[in-house]
Simulated scan of single mutants.
Amino acid sequence: MSRTARLPRTYWVAGTAVLLALLFAAVATMAAAANSDDRPAVPVSGPPGLRSADAGFARDMAVHHQQAVEMSFIVRDRTRDEPVRTLAYDIANTQANQRGMLLGWLDLWGLPKVLADEPPMSWMGTPGGGHEGHGGHAAARPGGPLMPGMATKEELTRLDAIEGRDAEVLYLQLMTDHHEGGVAMAEGCAKLCATPAERALAQGMVDAQQSEIALMADMLRKRGAAPRG
């Protein structure tokens, strides 16, 4: 079965996630006035702006997560190794839900999901730039040149063409790169985003993906391989 035929399965949790996004956004509005972290409270003055860190992170990370979901469904069908299949399922499920939340926030804020003239990561203060992923691996995304940590089309094609241990190793290497890029993005939102619920989601991404990076390094060692860094 081709990767194209499998792709619709990556969206199976999106509807529930959008509903969760609406709930989180409502909570965020109430929590903004009582922000209890070390930063000054963020005044409630309406939804985030078109080019705010909140909106930029939501747009970029939704695209970033989509590739992680796609890679995870590819490897699930290319190996019978249960630890890898379980990890892939967990990543796909978690990131599809988070992607639904991010897109739901954009809908709630009345903001577009793609800006054609917005370079990726410009919300982090790098206009016109874009970041390469770990080890120099990156890929194009709608609205900008590069996204951090993303696999190239050639790497995805290769992953879809191999099986067994080879697929496991490449997936773990690609996902390590992907997570490292995602952690950098999420750390940016945790510092720059004004919506408390979005900052909390971003920090949760940092914690979870750093843990999974360590897990994947161990899984690679057991297969006689290592991250590509």
Results as ranks from 00 to 15, higher is better:
22 L>C: 04
137 H>C: 01
151 A>W: 05
151 A>T: 09
27 V>Y: 08
42 V>G: 03
158 R>I: 00
198 E>V: 04
145 P>D: 10
21 A>S: 14
29 T>A: 15
85 R>W: 05
176 T>W: 10
200 A>N: 01
44 V>K: 04
51 R>H: 15
171 Y>C: 02
170 L>A: 08
177 D>E: 12
143 G>H: 08
229 G>R: 15
133 G>P: 03
172 L>I: 03
98 Q>D: 14
107 D>I: 08
143 G>M: 07
218 D>A: 14
94 T>M: 10
33 A>C: 03
43 P>I: 11
131 H>G: 00
160 D>P: 01
11 Y>S: 09
155 E>D: 13
163 E>M: 06
1 M>I: 09
14 A>M: 13
34 A>E: 09
202 A>M: 04
138 A>R: 06
73 F>K: 01
126 T>E: 13
150 M>P: 00
194 A>E: 15
168 E>K: 06
98 Q>A: 11
108 L>V: 08
91 I>M: 09
227 P>C: 05
202 A>L: 06
102 L>K: 12
191 K>F: 00
34 A>Q: 11
192 L>D: 04
122 S>I: 00
72 S>E: 03
153 K>Q: 11
149 G>E: 03
207 D>Y: 01
33 A>S: 15
1 M>A: 14
201 L>W: 01
166 D>F: 02
217 A>C: 00
209 Q>C: 04
114 V>R: 15
120 P>L: 04
152 T>C: 02
4 T>G: 03
98 Q>Y: 01
72 S>Y: 04
194 A>V: 00
65 H>E: 11
214 A>F: 02
69 V>H: 01
204 G>F: 03
131 H>M: 15
92 A>L: 10
62 A>I: 03
96 A>G: 14
85 R>E: 01
226 A>W: 05
142 P>Q: 06
122 S>E: 15
168 E>H: 05
64 H>A: 11
161 A>Y: 01
50 L>W: 11
222 K>S: 07
229 G>Y: 10
59 R>V: 08
3 R>I: 13
67 Q>F: 08
101 M>T: 09
70 E>F: 08
212 E>T: 03
146 L>T: 12
164 G>I: 02
220 L>I: 04
122 S>K: 09
102 L>D: 10
62 A>G: 12
204 G>R: 09
170 L>H: 04
80 R>Q: 10
75 V>Y: 07
202 A>Y: 05
160 D>N: 14
203 Q>R: 14
74 I>T: 13
51 R>D: 13
57 F>S: 10
182 G>P: 06
57 F>Y: 15
32 A>C: 02
84 V>K: 06
124 M>E: 13
198 E>A: 14
118 E>Y: 10
60 D>L: 15
52 S>A: 14
186 A>Y: 06
161 A>T: 03
162 I>Q: 10
25 A>T: 07
97 N>G: 06
